[in-house]
């Protein structure tokens, strides 16, 4: 492991206690809601905030933080990309990119040459003489990436690097960022609240809520088997907790769900809203998962209508606008909801 960190910070209502490990060439996404302490983790890794406890160790033997020792940011081999780029407004783009080389004693001419090469790599050839204020948001974030990478740091920290960009720019910059992260040999940590960023850019994801890691895994694992409501909502699943005995799960909140795979003990049940079907009367045949529920709200969601349901089981169903119209549902209406057992994922808690 090339970056191993245990970060403990106590600050007002925030009690942060997070462990991370990032191998060389790996991109770890720290995903979590606002106020979960993600950015604080990054500030500690950067050396901008001395932690109240824990350790930050690089390459197994370089101690950046420990209870006895705090190495300040400027003595760490790192690059950081901020949400709003933070390019120095009084320097040209080239001088911004060259800044990290100049502070490390590289001669001005050499630093500017290397900076020019990096500007070419991020697609900003010819813009080096501009001031940051004359760049578009996407260009500025590319320059900020070049500035962070130019010193070939051991650790690259990205703090919501795409969230200040408009939707279209975000798409292209995300693709470019993916390419640069693939080429990057060190350990990268990406903080984001956008699951798409985490899924697209990271090799592993940790989910932080209320200062704790609540889930860790590959992006695919996290997307398929969320362990908290927050993650489930991000990846578009309904999460139910219960206790399994064979192919039947007794839900904690009451009611039962039939599943296809056998399981035992405490489990999570994840349901995709588009696999939930709604009927005005009890459906014919004998599907095993049928519940009489009541519609709470219905909101248009792309090409479907998202129906939040309550009753024996709290569910969300995505139905097409056409079938929603045919059902003629209004909030408060009684409906029957059914899900095939084979469409329900079940995994241990």
């Amino acid at each position: 492991m090339s970056l191993a960190a245990h970060v403990v910070v106590r600050r007002g209502s925030l009690e942060l206690d997070v462990q991370l490990a990032v191998a060389d060439g790996e991109v770890l996404a720290v995903l979590g809601p606002n106020g979960a302490g993600k950015s604080t983790v990054l500030r500690v890794l950067a050396g901008l905030l001395p932690p109240d406890g824990g350790r930050v160790v690089v390459d197994g033997d370089q101690v950046w933080d420990s209870p006895e020792d705090h190495r300040p940011a400027h003595e760490r081999s790192l690059g950081m990309v901020f949400q709003d780029h933070l390019l120095f407004p009084h320097l040209s783009v080239t001088d911004n990119v060259a800044f990290g080389l100049r502070t490390r004693g590289v001669r001005r001419a050499d630093a500017r040459t290397t900076a020019g090469d990096w500007l070419a790599r991020v697609g900003l050839t010819g813009l080096g003489d501009r001031r940051p204020g004359q760049l578009s948001g996407g260009q500025a974030q590319r320059a900020a990436l070049a500035r962070a990478l130019v010193g070939e740091p051991r650790v690259l920290l990205l703090d919501e690097p795409l969230s200040a960009l408009d939707a279209r720019t975000r798409l292209t910059v995300r693709a470019e960022l993916h390419r640069h992260l693939t080429d990057y040999a060190g350990s990268a940590v990406l903080v984001t609240h956008d699951p798409v960023d985490a899924m697209a850019l990271a090799t592993r994801v940790v989910v932080v809520e209320d200062g704790r890691v609540v889930q860790a895994g590959t992006p695919a694992e996290v997307a398929r088997r969320p362990r908290t409501d927050y993650v489930a909502r991000l990846v578009g699943l309904v999460l139910l907790a219960g206790t399994a005995a064979g192919t039947t799960v007794e839900l904690d909140g009451g009611g039962t769900v039939a599943v296809a795979a056998e399981a035992h003990g405490p489990v999570f049940v994840a349901v995709r809203p588009e696999s939930v079907a709604l009927y005005l009367s009890r459906p014919a045949g004998s599907p095993r998962n049928v519940w009489p529920l009541r519609l709470v709200t219905a909101t248009p969601h792309g090409s479907v209508v998202r129906c939040d349901l309550t009753g024996e089981v709290a569910l969300t169903a995505d139905v097409t606008a056409t079938s929603f119209a045919e059902l003629g549902l209004a909030p408060g209406a009684e409906v029957w909801a059914s899900v095939k057992a084979s469409e329900v994922a079940v995994y241990p808690r």
């Binding site: 400027h74 690059g79 009084h90 502070t103």
Partner: peptide
């Protein structure tokens, strides 16, 4: 914005260099 000084620190600038090259011009 003191965060420019944070950015300078992550780029290897000690506080004196940060003061001369970032804070003072700002």
């Amino acid at each position: 914005d003191a965060r420019f000084e944070d950015a300078a620190a992550t780029l290897g600038a000690d506080r004196w260099t940060t003061f001369r090259r970032v804070t003072l011009p700002l």
